[in-house]
Amino acid sequence: MNDPFEEKLRALRPAAMPAGLQERLARPPEPAARRPDRRILWITFATAAAACVTAALFLHSSPSPATTGGTPQLVAERSQRVTSVRPLSVVTDESKRAWRLVEVQWVEEDTLVAADQPSAVQLQDHYRTVVPVAIHFD
């Protein structure tokens, strides 16, 4: 920047801070207390709730291979598979950390096979939850 006009402008000093502000800035600020962001709390709660519901459903609907008198013997086979992963949005918490909200859908399948008959029944339970995934910028 060799333009004399610009140099003359730059030579002007910005007005000094008033005493009151200088006093307020006399010491470095205390580190900000790390409060969890409300959105993160909500997401955490929702995820935990979804996990609880899933666990409850699992325990409740676990097929029983047990037999009782007069009923066919059933062999159960359980499988899980993810059916959809869909990014929803990106949010930031108070510390400006970015999180991607991802909707995950999955299905749990219980296949009941009669031990002595060539028949089977398949039950499906569909689940959906939203999971926060931290985004790292390297």
């Binding site: 801070m17 006399a26 470095p28």
Partner: peptide, 15 residues
């Protein structure tokens, strides 16, 4: 460090 930084840059920040 804080004091020197404020001294050096504070007026321009306020401007």
């Amino acid at each position: 460090r804080w004091r020197l930084w404020i001294q050096e840059r504070g007026d321009a920040f306020l401007l």
